[in-house]
Amino acid sequence: MNWKAFIAGVGAGAAAGHLVYHYLLSDKTISGDVILERVKDAFKQEGPIEGSWIQLKKQHYKKFAIDTFVYHGGITCIREGEKKQFEFIADANTGTIIDVYLA
């Protein structure tokens, strides 16, 4: 076996492993803007929206068994002829809405 080819193969394998780990397996978060658009799309199905906001800085969140990073946001919409303000908490890793409540 040629040692140069062996060393080149080991180097290529190490580089490929590094890339796979950092780009495919590492934790990635969803943008707060994307989460806000998903929430707005869900609320638009029930009526018009007046305004919305989201804090783009992730915050640590722990409640019972849930221990993750989240985005906090809010949305103002018209329901039953009145303006109602809702706030939500969304998981930064999956985009899942953890809680929605009337503000």
Rank of each mutant, 00 (worst) to 15 (best):
V34M: 05
V34F: 09
V34S: 04
V34K: 06
I35H: 07
I35A: 02
I35M: 09
I35C: 12
L36V: 01
L36Y: 10
L36I: 02
L36C: 00
E37N: 11
R38C: 04
R38W: 00
R38N: 13
V39I: 13
K40A: 14
K40L: 01
K40I: 05
D41C: 04
D41E: 05
D41K: 06
D41N: 08
D41G: 04
A42E: 04
A42K: 13
A42C: 00
A42P: 05
F43V: 11
F43G: 09
F43L: 10
F43C: 08
K44L: 09
K44D: 03
K44P: 00
K44C: 00
K44R: 09
K44F: 03
Q45C: 06
E46K: 15
E46N: 07
G47H: 01
G47E: 07
G47M: 06
P48S: 11
P48L: 03
P48F: 02
I49Y: 02
I49E: 04
I49L: 06
I49H: 01
E50C: 08
E50R: 15
E50H: 13
G51E: 05
G51P: 03
G51M: 08
G51L: 02
S52V: 07
W53L: 00
W53D: 04
W53T: 00
W53N: 05
I54R: 02
I54T: 05
I54F: 03
Q55F: 01
Q55C: 03
Q55Y: 13
L56N: 03
L56C: 00
L56M: 07
K58D: 05
K58I: 07
Q59K: 12
Q59E: 12
Q59F: 10
H60G: 15
H60M: 05
Y61S: 04
Y61R: 07
K62E: 15
K62H: 15
K62Q: 13
K62I: 13
K63E: 14
F64L: 12
F64E: 15
F64Q: 10
F64Y: 14
F64A: 14
A65M: 10
A65L: 08
I66Y: 12
I66E: 11
D67E: 15
D67W: 04
D67P: 02
D67F: 03
F69A: 14
F69D: 15
V70W: 08
V70L: 11
V70E: 01
Y71F: 12
Y71S: 10
Y71H: 08
H72V: 10
H72I: 04
H72M: 07
G73C: 13
G73Q: 10
G73D: 10
G73N: 08
G73P: 09
G74I: 01
G74K: 02
I75Y: 03
I75W: 02
I75M: 03
I75D: 08
I75S: 09
T76N: 12
T76E: 15
T76R: 14
T76S: 14
C77E: 08
C77P: 01
C77D: 00
I78P: 04
I78C: 08
R79E: 05
R79L: 11
R79Q: 09
E80N: 10
E80F: 07
E80Y: 06
E80T: 04
E80W: 01
G81K: 03
E82C: 12
E82T: 08
E82K: 15
K83H: 15
K83R: 15
K83V: 13
K83T: 11
K84P: 02
K84N: 07
K84F: 01
Q85T: 12
Q85R: 15
